[in-house]
Nucleic acid binder design. Structure first.
Lengths: 225, 225, 225, 225
DNA sequence: TATGAATGAGTGTTCATTCAT
DNA sequence: AATGAATGAACACTCATTCAT
């Protein structure tokens, strides 16, 4: 049914392209943006190709022309949003900060990014509902991810060296936990809000959660309390 | 489009029902079980009423007879899985354990439950994709949830009293974090596995994550390092 | 793309069916008849499922319910028309006629059948355009075909015995030729009419062709001129 | 819908065209060849303009430039293949052979031509499915066809004169039959192969059929057995 | 001469749901 | 209580054709 290999063809246009006849790249971009919104709101199965085309101010045929199909379009969206967050993380230049500050900055950034880009969360959830199939071809991403883990490792190493962090912390476990405590709160804010009968998204609630999360991570890695 | 109110009609059959309706209840139960599997695997939009009927060994018309429609069936499934986990938590009788043991037990239970009931996670994700609409009518659940928070509060209180826990910890924030560090790891295991190029589900990996999570929570609430 | 195996499921309804709830068999029959007309007129690729449904006074969904799809419907149509002609041939009871009369009767019947059932010809052409794929599962047909060849063989044998036919004539080659000289004239009547600038379908032309064909076959098999 | 008149514009480029237009003619030729293959394989409705353009190593727009549209392209293809076979027949120079040899040569040639050019058969079938509409404008062809019939008439006349052939044979009926017995065997080889469960295309089978056909025609026209 | 971009109408197929028994 | 028949709206996807360069 799903031809995952098609995802390989969904790479963004090559940068060498100079003359943009009739704005092909712009159309492609508008479709991608519309698809991101639509897939984020309704999931892969719930999103409608018609709606994406209309939202993009284009027409259905172009989606098939540029991306090959709905699933391949989903692949392209996924790759894009993952590249976006990894690029933003890299732009933090955490290597330039003292280790404790760097770590707090990372927790704060992760939280702020999820808040500012709520589509990221639902898209990742959709990708996982489909067992990650649509991400399998994204080799560029794996490289970026490794760079990111290395950076976190460097922060940990510097912290251990300067005595503020414990030794022996797995950077991937740490990374997962940093993401988890923000991501979970936000992705489950609706059911959580109903069941706990609590405001999740007010300013005070958000600030309280961020503070709790920073505390959680710093206590986890500190050399002493 | 969505008639959330239909969810009200999706309550499980009342216990007063005569015993001769055994078959009817059995059919209802098989439909509910089939729906759980199907919605968990494909989401609300991706699941097919036909497939649910077939998997239940029943026919489509019965779904409309017992539940009113696809969305109402989804409501019933959601309520059931939430009740199941809350009941299981209550059965832990954490009040009978010393506070540190009780807390470790809770972290461990939460992790094990998610592992043993993977549908729970994808169903909750689906519920949140739809902004929790399908949970709005589930009043029985809100009560249970409150009981659960109270129990965690009691553990924290006992821990503070005996000096092993810090004071001032919000039981709901703690609860969210306990869930988060297990839930996130498991729900995003596919994309995580691909991007980190790491085994998520092997025995060693699972044990390592559980240990990391217990450590995270205990460090978070301990009165000192 | 084409799942030829689906054709297997396109067998006509089992005769054991007694109670016809809401006229299921009638609907099936009307769809089959409409499909025959439509496929004959426009070919497999040219025929439209919408048009078939409308012509059948039914709706598109029923086509998929009863036949599984467009191609499977084509399989069912093909099987039906082949069974029809083989049944009609069997009804001729040629075994009861003197060999020469039987053979003339067969040539005449074949010609008349093609004239009365022009869809047969275009349907067979369509089947062959697709390399016969849609006939592969029709085992019932192969049996009938064999019975038919055996009957022709018996006529030939009786003719040889009585001295009117030559010995050594292959019944299948003869059969093919009997079909060919009628079929070709009719299937290519349009291009033939244009290129030869000749009336193909007037009464006189049809009679002349039939006479020519009978003459061709009798000269081919006669023991002497 | 169908604008048959467009076929008029599909004449091949006039020879007066300057030599510098070599590329243009080459493109036109490649499109025509690709179209022949594609129409032969899938019929008029089944063939895809995109596929033809790609197969021609050209682009879709050129098809519209040179031929005007899909149907007009089909007209051009049809005219070409008919001219090809008529030219090949003329090249046989049957007037130079004794009548019996000439007739056998013609049967043999027709058979060999169909075998070597299987597209001819499916294209003619497609043309007839559409009631010959696409051939209506091809006046050049009608002339050639007449020349061909005249040639067959001359062979028959010579045969009657020399006593080897019967008198009174209609050259067009004969022509049709010569074509029929080869054409039918080949066009229906797939369904025939399945229903008769017989090899149609092996060397021995082909030779046997050719021998049978020559025998059929010679017996039909011989003055005596 | 040549070409990629664009499109509207349509194409086979599937859906949740209702009807009739 | 249970079920096969039926449906219309929608679905992903494709088509021949025209536009702009």
């Amino acid at each position: 049914m799903l031809v995952v290999e098609e995802c390989m063809t969904a790479q963004s246009t090559t940068p060498e392209r100079k003359v943009r006849k009739r704005d092909a790249d712009a159309t492609r971009g508008r479709i991608l943006a519309a698809a991101k919104t639509e897939f984020a709101k309704l999931g892969l199965a719930g999103a409608r190709v018609d709606e994406i085309a209309e939202r993009a101010g284009s027409n259905k045929r172009m989606i098939y022309h540029y991306f090959g199909g709905k699933e391949a379009l989903f692949c392209a969206v996924l790759e894009e949003v993952y590249l976006d967050i990894r690029n933003a993380e890299r732009a933090l230049e955490l290597d330039a900060l003292p280790p404790r500050d760097a770590m707090e900055r990372l927790v704060r950034f992760t939280w702020d990014y999820y808040l500012a880009n709520p589509e990221f969360i639902t898209l990742v959830n959709s990708a996982n509902l489909h067992k990650g199939k649509h991400l399998e071809g994204a080799d560029r991403l794996k490289l970026r991810q490794r760079e990111f883990v290395d950076m976190v490792q460097r922060i940990l190493d510097r912290g251990v060296e300067s005595g503020v962090f414990r030794a022996g912390i797995d950077p991937i476990q740490l990374n997962i936990t940093i993401a988890a405590i923000g991501y979970y709160y936000l992705t489950n804010r609706h059911t959580g809000g109903i069941l706990f009968q609590r405001d999740y998204m007010g300013d005070a609630a958000l600030e309280a959660r961020l503070a709790f999360n920073i505390d959680t991570i710093l206590r986890l890695i500190s050399s002493e309390d």
